[in-house]
Amino acid sequence: MGKKFIGLCACTMGLAHTFMAAEALEQAAKEKGYDVKIETQGTDGIKNKLTPQDIEEADIILHAVAVTPEGMDRFEGYEIYEVGLQDAIKNSKGIIEEIEEDLGIK
């Protein structure tokens, strides 16, 4: 099975930055060979919701948030990386590479 990257994006309005960050992370993670699933908690509700199975299978779990997201209990006991939305939008690839280094993922 390939490596799996999951993310959760949320911001106060949920109109713009949430989705820009989600797209930037999705593209960068795909480019690096991951199976990707990104949940967005935006103004249109929770989309692409991460299941306990997604979380269990994930090699990397990243939250790009400006607010405390809903359903945090799902992630209890797992190692979660957290970044700001601006960082995720501007430097998605760099963030993933840093996490890979931290976790020793090749």
């Binding site: 109109l15 930055h17 989705f19 797209e23 967005t40 935006g42 249109d44 509700g45």
Partner: peptide
Amino acid sequence: SFLSPKKNTNNIHLTMLSKISRKLVN
């Protein structure tokens, strides 16, 4: 500029707007 009503979840139009945001990383 995105303008949205205050109360509006699970709205198809908002999901459409989110697609423009996604394009803004392209």
